Amino acid sequence: MRKHDPGIAIEPVASAASVASVASIKPRPMDPQQQIVIPDCCNLGVVCRTLIAVNAVLLAKTLLRGIDFSSVLMQFVESSMLVELACFVSLFVLCGIGRLAYGLPLWAQRLLCAVVPAVVTGSVVLWMSRYDWFLHSFMDMSLVGAVLIAAFFGIALQHYFELRGRAFSPVLVEARLQALQARIRPHFLFNSLNAVLSLIRTEPRRAEAALEDLADLIRVLMRDPRAMTTLENELQLCRQYLTIENIRLGDRLKVQWEREGMDDEVISSAQIPTLLLQPLVENAVHYGVQPSASTSVIRIQLKRRLERIEIVVTNPYHSQTGEALSDGSQMALKNIRERLALLYDVEGQLTTAIVAGQFEVRVRFPYMKTQPIDE
């Protein structure tokens, strides 16, 4: 990928010769040994669902044993002190283990989801047993019972999240995604072929390079929409797309790239769903540049804040295309929202806004590094 200054660079779209081919992009292997069945305990959605489930069971148990509301409330608050501490420590440990679990057999990963909460809960109970108020409040609690309950909750929640991951797999929306891509491909394909035809006699080498870029783009469009790639490869794909569109739009199309907290290492290692950014850039060209007779700037901002990546795509907003934008573009945006939700739960977000005559799409998702692939 072409290197940019960390600051702001306003440039025409790069020539086809300057863009590296994406034919070498390799999808992640589907080897079962490379699968991760440990829930992503770093994810806010997993943390919230775990705490809600555990506290709901605790509240139900307390209600069954309580006599009046005040005693039920007191018992629930006291029990929560122990339960919340054990839950948060277990989630923290599993969060770290989940990042190192590649290569572990599936049975070992499932076993860890039971062993970690059991060990953490046993340690917490032993540590809290040094205090008289704890012994007085939990006189009927045994260490063995607490460990077994924690192990049961651990394996039950792991099984729930594994089944949920399968049930809400992108397979369920793959048909809609393919229908959307089938709608996008002819539109883009016909425009690209017409642009290449206009170059065959006057600039045959440029036409040949454009056809090579078009072949690479179609190859990626035909890939499994569940595949993951790197941010670097996705940016290469966007540049190839912009190169082809530049043939048709000429000087009307200019791109402004910005980086904030994103060095080359982050860009080359950050994991991103395939075809997450390219459809957003395509919408920006179609609805922001194409309707204008003058030069229009598409602004692409790449930001990293803590362990989150934010991508902002901004293009001019034309009121006459507002209805078309709400009908056509919203399908692609809705699809990307679904993919983000399936991959990142509540930590994946896509928002849109119209700010100072500019249509802005903002995508946020966790920064996750690509895992090394054993050849």
Rank of each mutant, 00 (worst) to 15 (best):
R339I: 11
C42A: 15
G122L: 05
H136Q: 14
R206L: 09
V266E: 03
H136L: 14
D251W: 03
A175K: 15
K369H: 05
E174S: 10
T243C: 15
F152Y: 04
P225V: 02
E258V: 01
D213L: 14
G165W: 05
L44D: 11
R206A: 11
N335T: 04
P279L: 01
F168V: 08
G7M: 11
Q109S: 05
S269H: 07
R219A: 14
Q35T: 15
L59Q: 07
R219N: 04
I200E: 13
L51P: 00
Y241D: 03
V72K: 14
G357R: 06
C87E: 06
P273C: 00
M30F: 09
I155Y: 02
R308V: 12
S198A: 14
L112Y: 01
Q34L: 13
V37F: 09
L253M: 03
G96R: 03
T230Q: 01
C238H: 01
R206W: 06
L189D: 09
E232W: 11
P366R: 06
G328S: 09
R176K: 15
L112A: 07
H4Y: 14
N233R: 10
R164P: 00
R304G: 01
S294R: 12
Q34K: 12
R299W: 02
V125E: 03
A332Q: 11
L325N: 11
R201H: 15
V355Q: 12
I67P: 00
V119S: 04
A195S: 13
Q320L: 11
D68Y: 08
I244A: 04
E360N: 03
S192A: 12
E338K: 12
L343T: 13
R65T: 03
T314I: 05
C95M: 07
T50C: 09
V173H: 11
D264Q: 08
D264G: 00
M368F: 12
S319W: 13
Q349F: 08
R299K: 06
F188E: 14
L100V: 10
D31L: 10
I155G: 07
S70W: 14
R201V: 13
I354G: 00
Q301G: 07
V120S: 00
R305M: 14
H187V: 13
G250T: 02
F134I: 05
P29T: 13
M74I: 09
S80R: 01
E78V: 00
Q256S: 08
G154K: 04
F138Y: 02
S268K: 14
L64N: 15
D132G: 11
Q75R: 13
N43H: 10
